[in-house]
Design a protein around this nucleic acid. Structure first.
Length: 877
RNA sequence: GGGCGCAUAGCUCAGCUGGUUAGAGCACUUCGUUUACACCGAAGGGGUCCAGGGUUCGAAUCCUUGUGCGCCCACCA
């Protein structure tokens, strides 16, 4: 039978059906793959998207890359597992839902209360999670849905509790009163890397402070001052160091001590700073070094506390104005800088100004030496595995960034005063404290109200998804954990190295004493066409679903895979997707043409063979050897994560070699069914990881088995013959292009036939063997004479190169022809002079390798030959 | 303040360990409905590879300085 494909590829027509077919086959699940028992595993755990909103293009890029890797490895015979999941994203989700209920119901979470609020959160996330999973399927992601996980489902809750308890028992998790980043809006602590620093203009107040004048941007914190500090080497203030001073303040006179500390910069301001140990990180450190008391004056609401007299209850910003006014009345303000630029710390989720506060919180001690880590700390082990290349980074510059960041890591504050998340598994009763998986027996126990930082649970993602702790018995991995951990590669965005990658490494080392993955591949950000981050508020985003509907999932995938290099951001536009849609259609039409020329019977494993079909002509040999080297290049670059390079090579083979040349030749030489079929099969297989839908759809038109689990073509060295074949075919191509060029140049009607005489120097046989190609492949030659050499032909268009001479009869436009020859002549003259100069340079001839010098000599010789002939032709014209 | 990245055709980018007349796609010009594809085909125009200096027989490629843009980290009261 003949297979007939539609004239243009319509992605909408088949994508959903194909995805369903894949899913129903069960092959997304590695347990269903038909593999030898010793087949190696290849695992990627999907970075779980936050359930705060539906997916954006960045997620699509991630899915395209990971699905590419997984499909490639599956075709290569690996036991591939790509495990899906979503992230509860504690604080982010809570913020979104808080905004939602405020808008819809006019209520805060406190109006609702903990349980009703959490109910709202769960119904919200059910909806977004559904959207996210649907979008993921639309991209064609071959994820094992049977292992779908959520960072806050029952299994993960159990894992988190146990992890917390084990860390608590080892003393890695501890509770302590420390300075924390406090977001008054979220009413919670934040980790250091959840704080963003934004440059902005503020006022800098120069205030009279006892014998000093000093600068501060936060005069209201004066109420919490317990010292002033100067640099130990500052000559101006030597005599004050160690003194107790009486300072006049808005609430009366108070005492401060003068201390000397190197943290103070002499050149900034007046070189004197007021020290507010309870509301500044730097001041807190100074206070610790000098044993200074702290005085807390701002509460968790961001309000001045009762100990602030008449300012009590005011928000800090209000109190600041009030205090400044009072100080002015008292003559305590020296002057005010109105446009002082400084960095303000803000919450990465709600943009509120961060208030540093002392607070009792839970921490992970990254410097705590741990028995199970061989007496080393989490930090030490996490750095060590990178140095030893137990984990490698692509691009490798991120290894340094990772290590730098790790080395500066402070203890990680993990408790959050929000409701949505893993509640801390600790119970209190009077002075007693209990950490465990369940509430302790007996009355009067009260569970810690706080929840865990979202990165605590996502840090466990590599192994909590694979069945830890159930699959970890007496220090031995069993089940999925044994089969799939450590995973092979973590593919994620570089912006998340510190937040997530590092946490995963520490958590896995602690729980299993092994790395979570052996490679980290980092992709860049998808920017809009002006190079700006896409964001909802800017309205410059592109909705992936809309693009899929318009151009198809394959086109969207290709547009995110090509033109992206590892770790670098890339600009993106709808036009780019459009060009990829065009390519997908080209691939479809190549298939359409081949299938239309061939009788095929739809059957299982349709005539697939590792044996190359016999090549009858040069073109046959050429396309087969090109295919072979393309397979090599694509495989190598996929192995090295150079996805764009791999796709470029495939694109070049498909369009420039197969479609533009071989298919045209097939129309001329005929009887190529076997080779066309062979090439089409291989082509569909190697394109499949990039464009799974269109390839599967073509495949299913003549196969009853699935392309998805086909076998990747074998790699073999291209024979020495390949380079000769290539050279010979290129020779034919040069002649064809030269003839077309001459036609175009002389403005010859496309339908007008020409006569040609070719002097082939020593390649007469080669050209005669391929004369049908030369005559018919868009060259319009009706009679062709080929000889090794011969007489000049009059009244003909003359084309000369180092390798051949062509005379074209029947269409000459003398003017055009002359100007073309003159141009060519001038160009050659330039080249010849360049070569002569090069070869006259004794140092070049003396020092450069002999083969390079010889090549340059040959080049010159060829130029000179052409030059002479062209000169002659111009004269005669 | 410390670190990293980028600078190549109008646009988006390739150019690995230095060696053809520096490439591709889009855009542009001319021509084309020869039945796979106009989401196409053929031919063509377009670049002192950011600037200065250095290494080398030879530099877009290596070193150095500078300029411009972008990012990360730290942070100034």
């Amino acid at each position: 039978m003949k297979v007939e494909l539609d004239k243009t590829y319509d992605p909408a027509k088949g994508e959903a059906g194909i995805y369903k077919k894949w899913e129903e086959s069960g092959y997304f699940n590695p347990d269903s793959l038909d593999l030898p028992s010793d087949a190696k595993s290849y695992t990627i755990i999907l970075p779980p998207p936050n359930i705060t909103a539906k997916l954006h293009l960045g997620h699509s890029a991630m899915l395209a890359i990971e699905d590419l890797i997984i499909r490639y490895k599956r075709l290569r015979g690996f036991r591939t597992l790509w495990l899906p999941g979503t992230d509860h994203a504690a604080i982010a989700t809570q913020n979104v839902v808080e905004k939602k209920i405020l808008k819809e119901q006019g209520k805060t979470r406190h109006d609702l209360g903990r349980e009703p609020f959490l109910k709202e959160v769960w119904s919200f996330l059910e909806k977004t999670q559904g959207e996210i999973l649907a979008q993921t399927r639309r991209m064609g992601a071959s994820l094992d849905w049977s292992r779908l996980a959520f960072t806050l489902d029952k299994q993960r809750q159990d894992a988190v509790k146990l992890m917390f308890k084990e860390m608590y028992d080892e003393g890695v998790v501890y509770r302590g009163e420390r300075m924390v980043n406090w977001c008054p809006r979220c009413h919670s602590t934040l980790a250091d890397d959840e704080v963003e620093h934004k440059e902005e203009k503020a006022k800098l107040y120069w205030i009279k402070y006892g014998p000093f004048v000093l600068a501060t941007s936060r005069p209201e914190t004066k109420l919490g001052d317990t010292a002033v500090a100067v640099h130990p080497d500052d000559k101006r203030y030597q005599k004050f160091i160690g003194q107790e001073l009486d300072i006049e303040g808005v609430l009366g006179v108070f005492q401060v001590k003068v201390v000397a500390d190197k943290a103070v910069e002499m050149d900034f301001g007046s070189g004197v700073i007021k020290v507010t140990p309870s509301h500044s990180f730097i001041d807190s450190e100074i206070a610790t070094r000098h044993n200074l008391p702290g005085k807390k004056i701002i509460n968790e609401e961001g309000e001045m506390m009762e100990n602030c007299g008449k300012y009590a209850g005011m928000k800090t910003a209000v109190a600041r104005d009030a205090i400044v006014k009072d100080m002015q009345d008292m003559g305590l303000i020296d002057h005010i800088d109105e446009d002082y630029i400084h960095n303000s710390a803000r919450c990465y989720r709600c943009d509120s100004i961060i208030e540093p506060l002392p607070s009792e919180q839970w921490f992970i001690g990254v410097d705590k030496k741990v028995g199970r880590l061989g007496g080393k700390s989490l930090k030490e082990r996490a750095i060590e595995v990178a140095w030893r290349d137990e984990i490698t980074f692509t691009p490798d510059r991120y290894k340094k960034r990772y290590i730098d960041w790790m080395e500066n890591l402070h203890d990680w504050c993990i408790s959050r005063q929000i409701w949505f998340g893993h509640q801390i598994p600790v119970w209190y009763k009077d002075k007693e404290i209990y950490c465990g998986l369940e509430a302790p027996e007996g009355d009067g126990w009260r569970q810690d109200a706080d929840t865990l930082d979202t990165w605590f649970s996502s840090g466990m993602w590599s192994f909590s998804t694979l069945g830890w702790p159930d699959n970890y018995v007496n220090g031995k991995k069993i089940g999925d954990l044994a089969k799939f951990h450590p995973t092979q590669v973590l593919e994620t965005g570089y912006e998340i190295i510190t937040l997530w990658v590092s946490r995963m490494i520490m958590m896995s080392l602690f729980a299993l004493d092994e790395v979570p993955f052996s490679q980290v591949y980092l992709h860049g950000m998808v920017l809009d066409k002006n190079g700006k981050k896409m964001s909802k508020s800017k309205g410059n985003g592109i909705d992936p679903l809309e693009m899929i509907e318009k151009f198809g999932a394959d086109a969207v995938r290709l547009s995110l895979l090509m033109g992206f290099t590892p770790g670098n951001d890339a600009k993106f536009s709808e036009e780019k997707i459009e060009t990829k849609r065009n390519f997908v259609n080209k691939l479809w039409n190549i298939s359409r043409f081949i299938l239309a020329t061939i009788e095929v019977e739809k059957k299982e494993n349709n005539t697939i063979t590792e044996e190359m079909p016999g090549a009858k002509t040069l073109a046959d040999q050429w396309i087969l050897s090109s295919l072979q080297s393309t397979i090599e290049v694509v495989s190598k670059n996929l192995d090295e994560f150079n996805f764009s390079v791999a796709a470029d090579a495939l694109d070049d083979f498909t369009w420039n070699k197969l479609a533009d040349w071989y298919l045209e030749i097939a129309k001329i030489e005929k009887n190529k069914e076997e080779i066309l079929m062979f090439v089409l099969r291989k082509l569909l297989i190697i394109w499949h990881p990039f464009t799974p839908f269109v390839t599967e759809r073509v495949w299913e038109s003549f196969n009853s088995n699935l392309l998805m689990v086909e076998k990747w073509p074998e790699l073999r060295e291209n024979s020495d013959k390949a380079s000769l074949i290539n050279q010979e075919f290129q020779f034919i191509q040069e002649i064809v292009i030269a003839i077309r060029n001459a036609r175009s140049n002389n403005k010859i009607e496309p339908t007008k036939k020409l006569q040609a005489v070719i002097y082939a120097h020593d390649s007469e046989k080669l050209l005669i063997d391929n004369q049908e190609i030369i005559k018919n492949i868009k060259t319009g030659i009706d009679s062709l004479e080929i000889k090794n050499a011969g007489e000049k032909v009059d009244e003909a268009i003359y084309i000369v190169s180092g390798k051949f001479e062509i005379y074209l009869l029947g269409g000459i436009d003398s003017e055009q022809e002359k100007s073309r020859l003159v141009k060519e002549h001038a160009n050659l003259e330039k080249l010849i002079n360049l070569q002569i100069a090069k070869l006259a340079n004794e140092e070049f001839v003396g020092r450069a390798p002999a083969n390079i010098v010889q090549a340059e000599k040959d080049k010159l010789e060829n130029y000179q030959k052409e030059f002479v002939k062209i000169k002659q032709a111009i004269i005669e014209l």
